[in-house]
Amino acid sequence: AVTGSQTALLLRAFEKDRFPGIAAREELARETGLPESRIQIWFQNRR
């Protein structure tokens, strides 16, 4: 499950760019500790 702090970080990124590229998703994966594929799905679901 995604924690509150991970969600906050993802929401901030989403406000800046609703369609992040692979580099941005990989950076978010490093920052959150989540797999990049999970980040991609999160953005798809959020849109």
Rank of each mutant, 00 (worst) to 15 (best):
Q6H: 07
I22N: 08
S37E: 12
E27W: 10
T7S: 11
Q40G: 07
L11S: 06
A29P: 00
A23G: 08
Q40N: 13
A24P: 02
E26I: 11
L9D: 03
T3M: 07
T7V: 13
L28H: 00
L28N: 01
L9T: 09
L34C: 04
R30D: 04
A13W: 11
I22Q: 13
P20H: 01
E36C: 06
I39K: 02
L9I: 15
E26C: 14
R46A: 13
I39V: 09
K16E: 07
Q6L: 08
T7Q: 14
W42Y: 01
F14N: 00
F43E: 01
Q44C: 09
S37D: 11
F19S: 06
E15G: 06
L34S: 01
V2E: 08
I39D: 03
L10C: 00
A8R: 11
P35T: 14
R38Q: 14
A1T: 13
A8W: 08
I41P: 00
A13E: 03
L28Q: 00
A29E: 03
R38E: 15
A24R: 11
K16Q: 10
R30H: 06
A13K: 03
E31Q: 15
G33P: 02
R25I: 15
R47T: 05
T7R: 14
Q6E: 04
V2C: 03
T3V: 06
G33K: 05
R38G: 06
A23T: 09
R38T: 15
E26V: 10
F43R: 00
R30I: 07
W42F: 03
D17E: 08
I41L: 12
Q40M: 13
R46V: 06
A1P: 12
L10H: 00
P35V: 05
S37I: 12
R30M: 08
R47G: 04
D17S: 08
L9Q: 08
F19P: 01
E15A: 11
E27P: 01
P35C: 07
A29D: 01
K16F: 09
Q44I: 11
R18A: 12
F19G: 01
I22C: 11
A24Y: 06
T32H: 00
R25E: 02
I39M: 01
I22K: 15
R12Y: 06
S37M: 09
S37Q: 10
D17K: 03
A24L: 10
V2Y: 13
E15M: 12
F14L: 03
Q6M: 11
F19D: 07
F43H: 02
E36F: 06
Q44K: 10
I41H: 10
E26W: 08
L10I: 01
A24M: 12
R30S: 05
A23R: 11
Q40P: 01
A8K: 12
A29F: 03
A13T: 04
T7L: 15
L11F: 05
S37V: 10
E36D: 08
E15D: 08
E15I: 10
R46E: 09
W42E: 01
G21K: 05
R12S: 08
F14G: 00
V2K: 04
A1N: 12
E36P: 09
T32F: 03
I22M: 12
P35F: 04
E36Y: 05
G21H: 05
L10P: 01
A23Q: 13
T3S: 12
E15F: 11
R38H: 12
R18P: 15
E36K: 04
R47H: 04
G33W: 02
P35Q: 07
T32C: 05
D17F: 05
R12F: 06
L11M: 13
G4R: 15
S37C: 13
Q40L: 14
A1V: 11
R47Q: 06
G21F: 03
I39N: 02
T32Q: 01
Q6Y: 07
A23C: 13
N45T: 11
S5V: 13
L28G: 01
L28W: 01
N45D: 12
I22H: 11
A23S: 10
A13V: 07
A8I: 13
A23Y: 08
A13H: 09
F43K: 02
Q44W: 07
I41V: 10
R47V: 08
R12G: 04
G33S: 04
I41T: 10
L11Q: 11
F14V: 01
T32K: 00
A24Q: 11
K16R: 11
Q6I: 13
G4P: 15
F19K: 04
E36L: 12
L28R: 00
T7G: 08
T32M: 04
F19Y: 13
L34I: 08
A8N: 08
N45E: 14
F19H: 08
I41K: 10
L34Y: 03
T7Y: 15
L9C: 09
A8E: 13
R30W: 06
A1Y: 13
K16W: 06
K16P: 01
Q40I: 12
R12D: 06
T7A: 14
S5L: 14
A8H: 07
R38F: 15
S5H: 13
L10D: 00
G33Q: 04
F19I: 05
R18T: 06
G4F: 10
L11D: 06
I39W: 00
E36N: 05
L11I: 13
R46D: 00
D17V: 04
E31I: 15
L11G: 03
P20M: 03
P20T: 03
A29V: 06
A29H: 03
E15T: 07
L28E: 02
A8L: 13
P35Y: 02
G4V: 14
R12C: 09
Q40S: 11
E27V: 12
P20G: 02
T3R: 05
G33F: 02
E31P: 01
T32L: 09
G4S: 14
P35L: 08
R47S: 05
S37R: 11
A29N: 02
F14P: 02
G33H: 04
N45Y: 08
K16M: 10
R38A: 15
T32V: 07
I22W: 10
L9K: 08
E15N: 09
E27I: 12
G4A: 15
P20D: 01
A13I: 05
P35I: 05
A29K: 03
L34Q: 02
